[in-house]
Amino acid sequence: MTGHAADSDILLQLDGVSMQYGRGETAITALAGVDLSVSRGELVAVMGASGSGKSTLLTVAGGLTPPTSGEVVVEGHWLSQLSARELATLRRRSLGFVFQDFNLIPSLTALENVSLPLELDGWTSKKAHRPALDALTIVELGDRAGHFPSDLSGGQQQRVAIARAVVGGRSLILADEPTGALDSTTGELVLRMLRSRVDAGAGAGGILVTHDARHAAWADRIVFLRDGRIVDESRASAVSSLLAGLQA
């Protein structure tokens, strides 16, 4: 693969990314010149109304759809310069997706679901089980490895999905409304897991697409999309005037 970015702390970079569906007068612009970067150890939330381009941003960042124009760089690799096979390999090794509806395979146990990306990458199932179990342990489900998705609660299934997204040292987590199907406190637990994974110092980072303000607040940075453009950004400061009177 070619094209290494100078700054290895940057996991993902979107450079002037635009996305149009259709042509001519009926063309719909989903993204219009988006610049965004995610560093290692950073969780970035993307907020915006329905149709603002949030989900498109995630599919473009994940190399699932090439942008109409602009460049996507993942761990120093220019996606536009990769062959289909190289892109598939990069997605398997570097990216982990977390969806609203978990997307676990019902006929596989939690451990087998988490092992799957490694096995697809040529690992033997025996060899894949160790890191898969480690990943399940991180999300506090090591003791549920043999359970099928139907035996797990929604929150537990989503934690399995997070384990699957990070197994084998994959560093860029792309989460699309991961708490959408969960109740309030379970959603918070899932966010806490995602947050601790990014904070673990293993070089991971991620994008969290959500319309839920309380969940977006777990991110280091929040970008606001409107009509496919980033219109603003909120970065948590170390010390807040609001919290000046508060002591934990």
Binding site: M47, A213, R214, A216, A217, W218, A219, I222, F224, D232, E233, S234, R235, A236, S237, S240, L242, L243, L246, A248
Partner: peptide, 13 residues
Amino acid sequence: TATMRTLQELTRT
């Protein structure tokens, strides 16, 4: 943006 920043800081705390 201002309210989200407040929310982020509360969540951090």
